[in-house]
Amino acid sequence: MTGELEVLVPTRDRPVELATTLAGLAAQDHPFDVAVSDQSDGPASFDTPPARTMLRALRAAGRGVRTCRHLPRRGLAEHRAALLAGSTARYVLFCDDDVWLTPGAVARLHSAIVELGCGLVGAAVQGLSHLADHRPAELAPFERWPGRPEPERISPGTAAWGRWTLHNAANPVHLEQRHVRPGERWVAYKIAWVGGCVLYDRRALDAVGGFGFWPELPASHCGEDVLVQWRVMERFGGAGILPSGAVHLESPTTVPDRSVQAWDVVAPGAAP
């Protein structure tokens, strides 16, 4: 195992999508380990021939690979907390089980977080079925970070909250086309949050308590990743990067009940 970076993949009832996610990881050339934690109702999503093949490919490339079943389900935040608790890596990349990463995406994320020295760097997922759907008004809040991202407090109603539109549909593709100049390896920009693929500095994540707030939430909730990102960005700063390299598989959500948002229950700036 590398010890430097581990990709943490929570999964549930997505055997096809998980195999695709693992295939994207297997095509990366940056050193990292992988942990997959499953909460499926039936057989584990990683217990299929395609997924097992991709896990073998990762091991053959020298990756440390861990798989486990994590039941009973106590909610998204608890699942993420358990994955984090099982990792000792310096950097942890939470990658959802419906995200395919283009070659070079992990290396780009790692390069950015090391050079920027901030608490998190995210690759916003892109819905490629929307490539022809250009939304200039939603791209308007885009703003580069001119240097190291500064700490900032984000919550609903703030000006920074309006950046959420940057990540709708295929907007990250269109932002890349507009703002990545020839010769630039990556561009860091200001975010409200990033869904699906976020690399954390483990020390920053631990400093804000990680996902340790999970007992305060009912089992059915969402927005736990948003809350954690707000806490990290308030103390350590954070950024999105272009090119994203994270492609959303656009499968139906496995979290249909979104009536409870974590930030409505747990105060974003409350001490962990």
Rank of each mutant, 00 (worst) to 15 (best):
V16C: 11
P31G: 12
L242I: 04
H179G: 07
D201F: 00
A85K: 08
G238T: 06
P182W: 05
P31Y: 04
R163L: 04
A27G: 12
V247R: 02
V180N: 00
A271N: 13
E115S: 15
A81Y: 01
W193K: 03
A123V: 10
A77M: 02
L249Q: 05
T165D: 12
G162P: 00
G212M: 02
V232R: 01
Y189E: 10
M54S: 06
G147V: 08
G24K: 02
V255R: 13
R178F: 09
A246W: 00
A57I: 07
A89D: 01
S37L: 09
R202H: 14
R163W: 03
L139Y: 07
G269W: 13
R69I: 15
E4W: 09
G119S: 11
A207K: 06
R203D: 14
L139C: 07
H167C: 07
Q229H: 10
L199K: 01
E152Q: 14
V198Y: 03
C197V: 08
G196Q: 04
A124Y: 01
S220A: 13
A239Q: 01
S40H: 05
V34I: 13
V247A: 03
N171G: 04
D264S: 11
A123I: 09
E224N: 06
N171E: 07
P215D: 14
A112K: 05
G157E: 10
T88R: 13
T67K: 07
L249G: 04
A85N: 13
H179T: 12
E115D: 14
P49L: 06
G196I: 05
E143H: 12
P136R: 05
Q261K: 13
W263K: 05
W214A: 04
P72T: 07
V36G: 02
V226D: 04
P72K: 10
A160E: 12
I113E: 03
T20S: 08
F211A: 02
R144C: 15
R203W: 04
N168Y: 15
G237M: 02
H134C: 09
E78I: 06
D201N: 08
R56P: 02
G162H: 13
V99P: 02
R12N: 07
P146F: 07
Y189A: 06
T48H: 06
V106L: 08
R74N: 09
D264M: 12
R73N: 10
H30I: 09
A270I: 04
R185Y: 13
D13H: 10
G117Q: 08
V228C: 09
H130R: 15
A123K: 01
A107G: 15
H134T: 11
R144T: 15
F32D: 00
E150A: 12
P31W: 04
S45L: 07
S129K: 12
W263H: 14
R135C: 11
L18T: 01
W186D: 03
L83Y: 10
V34M: 05
Y189F: 12
A77P: 00
T165K: 08
S244L: 01
G75W: 01
P272W: 06
A137Y: 03
G127P: 02
